[in-house]
Design a protein around this nucleic acid. Structure first.
Length: 780
DNA sequence: CGTCTTTGTCATCTA
DNA sequence: CGTAGATGACAAAGA
């Protein structure tokens, strides 16, 4: 019963932390409005699109922001990060797919329409994402690949921006309709994209004004709003959220959250028991309370801010709310959380089941993070209570467990962890593998690899803290959160974040640039006069091309939706006018007026002259020169005609030498102009492709890292199992006098044919050393 | 007013 | 050799 309570309390503790953090996160809205930089940036990341690098690099940002190496806030910092990661993981935990899909619909238009608009993904909920979020990107990704949620999670943070290039006008209209519907339904536009929306509001103000937003956020009327699901900016997942200022809503959200958790948590088989709320409250402060850690645990963000809102107070409010809700918690949850009792390591503790117990989590830390042990105690409070469990399970035979454990810890010979020092005779952890073990070398190697992996990570911008956090997250969430918690950008350092940030700023092209289909037909209606020879690899670029023969102009994407909706509005856009101008390159002013003026609907009649002047100003220098020299044909012809026709044209007219020279110059310059545009497009394409490749590689790397950790974990478990079996067998062996063999004098050796031999230790040592040398020689 | 971005232009190289 | 295209470098214009 004691252990049960422990399990219950720690499980509840985690869950409560989750809830509190959800509450915190929602209330962050108020922090945002109060413009408190620290919290705002920690939770949402910098709001400016220009600071995206920091946003993607938020781990580093956190490093930079709150932590001084000697700061006493270090504990808070680590705890906060750990808890945030847990919350993220738990989010994923309880996401109902259908709701996700619903939100994906919302997000899809956002991502697509926003196109290349640099969007920092500053949804309110992206706070959970912290370091690896690009909002629209994820939304689009998820909508694109709804078939595999976990895959989506795995891809999270991969900054492959949405494609807008192949959207037809109908698509865009539809998207816009959906978008407006979202707004009507109460989904504020900020939900999808904070910064982008703010910008876009400047462009088309008719869509929505602030009052509408307020209505949106107050959650009036609609039943859908009663649930008030928020969507995670990172994953697009929705979760029940607390509406600021509404305690009823909060309670509802919590209840919802509980239900979701119960519905989705994988460990809900056993009989339920009525959760004693008082035990929760009592357990929270008391359980797993290594000195000095509890406060940090409870209020990870507190010390970092001077916020007028006391998070501690929020926590207490939350607790009181939980008390009011007679919630029921599954016993089995906690049992699983706490794994099997240490008494029987063989039966339960070695299973590779996904619901890995915390005990094992802890021991993996020990195994893999020996080099980072200083981070250790800071990082995972569970570890503090660990020696009890681990000493009983892992080192069942060791009389002096904790000290030897620690020493084992410090050394890189982590294999010692799995082989009780007792078997090493003198308990000397540098004595090498006294125990001949077929897995020993493998394990050592694996551990060495992992250590080197950590080194690698550090080299590449990982700091040990991140690395250990990676490990921790891998461990602590039964693998369910592995995918989503570690986007490539978060995994890999500054390079990753820089690339991802830049990719999102130029997001219109990167995701589709691999497709080699050139959609020149789509753009032909617009650009036929431009006759740009270069057909981009990227369909998205074709969209821009479709706006005119003028080269790549990122700003087009801003108006993309609008211009498609109403082509007449093209006239309002200076560049596009310029584009049109280009198409009738060298016409006489009167001709220009008739040919180039946009549809009358977009113009007031009185402004025609103005327009003419404007167009006149917009004429290129070559056009002016051509007019001055009275060149009898358009610059367009001069430039784009094939050589033969061009020569024919020249021969038709009696042209002076100066005129001819000018014409040739115009042709040369015109061609070069387009060449330059194409060149730049191509360059951009190349960069984007490279960027995407980098992201892919980072994603692969992250996946491989995850797999490696998983493999190491199972390997370690198998080793434990083997070791236990070894001890069991060895312990049952009796010599001819019926006495047990001394482990210091004899050892079991596994023969190649599967048989097990009892041999003297000296012999075993020799063989072990021989085996040890072999791999070393191989390495040399 | 300085800075950054975009675009046009020139020089040069290559096919 | 002339033409066209590609590209680096520079400058002007505009944000």
């Amino acid at each position: 019963m004691l252990s049960l309570k422990k399990y219950l309390t720690e499980g509840l503790l985690q869950f409560t932390i989750l809830l509190s953090l959800i509450g915190v996160r929602v209330d962050v809205d108020t922090y945002l409005t109060s413009q408190l930089p620290p919290l705002r940036e920690i939770i949402l990341g910098p709001s400016s699109a220009y600071t995206q690098t920091q946003f993607h690099n938020l781990r580093n940002t956190l490093d930079g922001y709150g932590v001084h190496p000697k700061s006493i806030d270090l504990d808070n910092y680590f705890t906060a990060r750990r808890l945030l990661s847990q919350v993220r993981a738990l989010d994923r935990f309880q996401v109902p797919t259908t709701e996700v899909n619903a939100w994906l619909v919302h997000r899809d238009p956002e991502g697509s329409v926003s196109g290349s608009q640099p969007s920092s993904g500053l949804t309110l909920e992206s706070s959970s994402g912290l370091q690896d979020v690009t909002g629209p990107d994820n939304g689009v990704r998820e909508s694109e690949t709804e078939q595999g949620f976990s895959e989506d999670l795995e891809d999270l943070g991969a900054v492959a921006p949405p494609v807008s290039g192949d959207l037809t006008k109908e698509d865009i209209d539809l998207i816009d309709i959906l978008w407006r519907q979202d707004i009507d339904l109460g989904a504020g536009r900020e939900i999808f994209d904070y910064s982008h929306r703010q910008k876009e509001q400047d462009v088309d103000k008719d869509l929505q004004d602030g009052a509408e937003q307020d209505d949106t956020w107050s959650g009036e009327g609609a039943e859908a709003l009663a649930r008030n699901l928020l969507v995670d900016g990172e994953t697009g997942e929705s979760f029940p959220a607390q509406v600021p200022g509404g305690e009823d809503q909060t309670a509802l959200s919590l209840e919802e959250c509980l239900r979701l958790l119960e519905a989705t948590c994988p460990f809900g088989e056993n009989a339920e028991f009525p959760a004693d709320i008082s035990s929760i409250t009592e357990a929270v402060p008391s359980e797993s309370e290594p000195p000095g850690l509890q406060n940090n645990l409870l209020s990870p963000l507190l010390t970092g801010t001077d916020s007028p809102f006391d998070l501690e107070q929020q926590w207490q409010d939350l607790m009181s709310i939980m008390e009011m809700q007679a919630m029921e918690v599954n016993t089995s949850t906690n049992e699983i959380l706490y794994s099997a009792p240490p008494g029987d390591p063989l039966s339960t503790n070695y299973s590779l089941a996904p619901n890995t117990p915390i005990n094992q989590n802890v021991s993996l830390h020990q195994a893999s993070l020996g080099g980072c042990s200083q981070d250790f105690s800071l990082f995972s409070p569970e570890v503090e209570s660990l020696p009890v469990a681990s000493s009983s399970t892992l080192l069942p035979l060791v009389p002096s467990n904790s000290t030897s454990l620690n020493s084992t810890f410090g050394s890189t010979n982590l294999a010692g962890l799995f082989f009780p020092p007792q078997l090493n005779g003198t308990a000397n952890d540098t004595a090498g593998p006294e125990l001949p073990d077929p897995l020993g070398g493998l394990l050592d190697e694996a551990m060495l690899d992992e250590i080197s992996l950590m080194d690698l990570a550090i080299e590449e911008g990982f700091n040990p803290v991140q690395a250990s956090q990676l490990e921790e997250e891998f461990d602590s969430d039964s693998g369910l959160s592995l995918d989503s918690s570690h986007s490539p950008s978060s995994l890999s350092s500054s390079e990753g974040s820089s690339s991802s940030s830049s990719s999102s700023s130029s997001s219109s092209s990167s995701s589709s640039s691999s497709s080699s289909s050139s959609s020149s037909s789509a753009s032909s209606s617009f650009s036929e006069e431009g006759a740009v020879g270069y057909s981009s690899d990227s369909e998205t670029l074709d969209l821009e091309e479709a706006e005119g023969a003028v080269g790549y102009q990122p700003e087009y994407s801003k108006f993309c939706r609008m211009s498609y909706q109403d082509p007449s509005q093209l006239s309002c856009l200076p560049y596009l006018e310029h584009v049109g101008h280009n198409h009738t390159y060298n016409m006489a002013p009167s001709a220009l007026d008739s040919a180039d003026l946009p549809p009358p609907s977009a113009l007031k009649k009185g402004s025609k002259e103005k327009q003419a002047d404007f167009l006149d100003k917009q004429m290129s220098r070559d056009e002016h020169r051509a007019r001055a020299m009275k060149i009898p044909f358009t610059n367009d012809k001069i430039i784009n005609l094939p050589v033969e026709e061009f020569n024919e044209l020249l021969s038709k007219y009696q042209l002076s030498e100066a005129q001819l020279s000018l014409i040739r110059d115009i042709r040369r310059r015109g061609k070069n102009k387009m060449a330059a545009q194409n060149c730049r497009k191509r360059k951009l394409d190349t960069i984007l492709n490279l960027e995407r490749d980098v992201e892919d590689l980072q994603r692969d790397k992250a996946r491989l890292l995850r797999e490696k950790v998983e493999f190491l974990r199972s390997l370690r478990q198998m080793k434990q199992k083997v070791q236990s079996l070894y001890q069991e067998v060895f312990g049952r062996l009796r010599d001819e006098n019926g006495r047990p063999y001394s482990p210091s004098q004899y050892a079991l050796q596994y023969a190649g044919d599967g048989s097990v031999l009892l041999i003297p230790r000296t012999l075993a040592d020799q063989q072990a050393r021989r085996q040890e040398r072999k791999p070393k020689d191989r390495r040399k």
